[in-house]
Nucleic acid binder design. Sequence first.
DNA 1: AGCACGCCGACT
DNA 2: GTCGGCGTGCTC
Length: 836
Amino acid sequence: LIGGETVGKALKGGLPPPVMPSEATTVEIALPLPVANTFTYALGEFDLPALGTRVRVPFGRKERIGWVVGPGRPGEGRRLRKVLAVLDPQGPAVTAEILELCTWIANYYAAPPGLTLRAALPALLTDVSTDRVRIVGRPRDELRPRERALLDAIERRGGAQRVATLRNLLGKGSIWPEVDRLVREGVLVLETEVPKDARPATRRVVRLTVEGLPLGERDTLFSRAPRQRDAFEWIETAGGSAALADLLGEGEFSRSVVSGLEQKGVAVVADEEQFRDPFRSIPVEAGPALVSTPQQAEVIRRLVSALDDPAPRPFLLHGITGSGKTHVYVELLAAVLERGRTGIVLVPEISLTPQTVGRFRARFGDRIAVLHSGLSDGERYDAWRSLRTGERQVAIGARSAVFAPLTDLGVIIVDEEHEGTYKQSEAPRYHARDVAVVRTRAAGAICVLGSATPSLESWSNVAAGKFVKLELTDRVSGGALPPVQVIDLRVPPPGAGRPAPPAARSGRILSPELERAIETRLDRREQTILLLNRRGYSSFVQCGSCGDVAPCPHCSISLTFHRRLKVLLCHHCRHRAPVPDRCVQCGSAELNYRGLGTEQVERVVVERFTDARVARMDVDTTSGRWTHHEILGRVGRGEIDILLGTQMIAKGLDFPNVTLVGVINADVGLHLPDFRASERTFQLLAQVAGRTGRGPKGGEVIVQTAVPTHYAIEMATRHDYPAFAARELAERKEPAYPPHLRLLNVIVSSPDEETAAREAESALRSARSLHGQGIVYLGPAPAPIERLHGRWRWHFLARSRSVSRLGALASFLAFDHRTVGSDVRVVVDRDPVALL
DNA sequence: AGCACGCCGACT
DNA sequence: GTCGGCGTGCTC
């Protein structure tokens, strides 16, 4: 896709492009637009830059930044516009390795090449120009209404205004005709601000040039300069260097004191690039186990020896919860760094895994760059550049860290490789785990996919001999996995005089068994984790008389009642509606709150255990950047007795004092219309069960469910992943689903219901007639979530064992298929992780 | 994405 | 005869 066949081949062979740089007069540029093609520009005075170099080019009436992907394709002699500037004097922003990787992604996922490249780089490197207008004169002629409105808007806001802002303000399409006319009339001037080239932020830093100055020398050196001595020791305490601003501000030293230190030759003041890293303030915890168990040592040995293999196969590290996978990662990375190579650690959601990140930071300190979604553009750029220059050699982060610009890559570790968050939900819709496999294969690096509950894809890749399995079957603590007690929500509690109706039992939220277990923990000053994978207070509000349920007006799901906010909230589009006092359909005042959410569980728990310190963790309580750390910090310090939350509490937490895990209702999500529903339920239960029994005190798990005989629940309670995998693989044979074959999910959406249905059918018809060979189609049908964000959604599935045939189909649907009708969108999702 | 062009119905 | 809304196709 990028620059045609020749570029791909040239890259693979590491050969120069087929045209000698000096001869080339045109260049092929990928621009960050949702289009399949690249654009040809004249080079003018410039030599052909290296592939991956950023250039500034005119595009339409704007300037944009694009990437050189090859010499220009011979055109038909049409006039080409000229490259305005070649950026990246210190070398291309996109290395040959990353360019090749992006080419693969763009091809495989049928994604626009420019959007793929943009996804691989920090935003600061892809900014476009902005246009501003300012009033400089009075209009002579009569103004049209829209011109009048434009001038009023500028006057009201004062000064220079961005054209894009003004367009949004006025609504209704482009305002360029008006701007152009007013500029010609001399009423406005137009200023185009060129994209700012990302310059590293610098700050003045004072650094001491001597270390451990003896007391006697100190006395003589500073005998008549007590302030200089104070400043010297202030900087010493700060670790040998300090920001000049801090010294003058917090330290309240004057500039002349600093000059005095410079004069004496004990300190230098210099501009230093500034690295701002919010993870710095998070306390670094030393790892609990510094000595490997024999099992860990064997796994580490096998991984390290694979570093010498020129073409190692990817490893699947199947280690039960608490078996010390992180320790293996840390030791492996240490070995990689020792050999002068570099590494990437991918985690599903970095803000949820502060403990894991802490372990890496404790071991690798300044050699590691933490890529976090909370980073500002500047911080992200700083981190990226530190990796590009080799100043830091390890990147840790979510999905996009797979693009970390490291040279001589030794390893990519994908922690919790089964997690769906590795799939990007917008173009390019790549799966970071699969991209990691591709990147390591090309780089001759090793790939380690770790999980206690591997994806069935990886599991079957082991069976097929594509991956190598390594196992950790013992917990580091020496303890066994915690025993799991299943509470059948359909059966009345033991000791009840007569059988209670099922509702009475499920209506209790906490079974007597779970209540007693929590009580015991409170008595023993131990901690409890309660999981309910559904937030809010109750899932929906149902009329007791006509049965009507209040739906979201934009999506086809029911609104969730949030008690604290006193609103009904759509969990997809965040639509808010007031809580009704009577049914909108029949007017009945008898409204029932059905379905259970974390908020309601919190209320019940707080009322039942009045002395307990309870914290709730879900997206409603953790909107702030660092709220996760704050809540988890309190759990770690023993300030919380009961931690209640959604799936975000199931991952990566390691607190030895947690001796009880209660699952309020294991069935949430089990009955979703998605072929991975069972797999996800098993994973969630297995993961949350693993949060306990990590210390000498042991642990216990209580799972409440209405389907205790379902294999996902049964095998999770037995901690038997291989048995689950075998059963689930059999379940997916007929009808066939991944990993037995590959899937393409095609979603056609439109604000109009009939248009969505008609266009889905028409897309499927073209697909069948042009790509019928070796592909089995299913559908079209309304998507499981039929309406989302005010759009009607229809979808169909294409299933095939042929990677190349599905690729051709994906590319056809994404770029060549024409739709008819208003605002129709076609999304092509290759290897989808969810069909909703 | 963002824009222009051209078609069509509605209003002067 | 003119305006504006919307569908379509191009941007190098």
